[in-house]
Design a protein around this nucleic acid. Structure first.
Lengths: 130, 130
DNA sequence: ATTGACTATTACGTAAAAGTCAATATTATT
DNA sequence: AATAATATTGACTTTTACGTAATAGTCAAT
């Protein structure tokens, strides 16, 4: 018999550092579909993984709609030619988008290095030993 | 004599793909300070560069407040010890944040590759020659 | 039986970042 | 001079992603 472990909503909010409101909101938005025992939500490991991926999407600036779309694609990939081509185009665009973002991040990391160096310089001026 | 070129607001909105509302909003928020001839805004090359940096910050999810803060630091770096230490701490946190984001992006790029491959697979099934 | 922790739903509120619209000025061109 | 193009301010609206409050049910432990 499988373990069939369930997570409670608060367990997951603690693990991921989000509120219950957020997880309920994601359910309202159709991103997740936890089981129910009565009215209480029961989250399975698959739900937990999905939440992790949703939050990853959130961190890099995906909207709820975009995240929903990606989930949808995984659930039932389009069978029709036109849909497939459209999807591939959108994937390509997103890729470009993310590459730009990665470059933005690298540039900003460099900028942060500069700021930090300037700080160290000032500290030295003031006469603080680092 | 220097060129002393000015850009009009629409020139810049076209270049950066934003609306005039956005640039005026950034001025209201104290991020940029274009000159004026009468009521009309005149943007100098330095303003133009700054706008580029603001939009880069926006792309990677910085809030207006954070962007303003960074600009402020460049304009007048803090001289007081406590302020400097605080700034360095915040720089460090941001760096961690950005590193996480870059990892998120890399993971997502891999995911996009998977989706694309799945698409190509389906196309082959349907019998389309790529 | 009550306290405390957790859960639920419904509904209204909010902050950020613009979008949109109106009314008006300035500038440029024909 | 008339007209078109571009500019301004100011006010109201919108969207996204939740926050917050009110109200109430469930369950274990004291």
């Amino acid at each position: 018999m499988p373990v069939n472990k369930y997570y409670s909503i608060t367990e997951l909010t603690r693990e991921f550092g989000v509120s219950t409101r957020t997880l309920r909101f994601y359910e309202d938005e159709g991103l997740i579909h936890p089981e129910r025992r009565g009215r209480t939500r029961l989250f399975r490991p698959a739900d937990r993984r999905l939440i992790g991926e949703i939050l990853r999407g959130r961190r890099i600036g995906f909207t709820i709609a975009e995240i929903r779309e990606i989930i949808q694609v995984y659930k039932e990939p389009p069978g029709e030619l036109g849909q497939l081509k459209l999807l591939m185009k959108r994937v390509d665009e997103k890729r470009e988008d993310l590459r730009q973002k990665r470059k933005d991040i690298d540039d900003t990391l460099t900028e942060l290095d500069n700021i930090e160096e300037a700080c160290l310089g000032r500290l030295a001026e003031i006469g603080v030993t680092t």
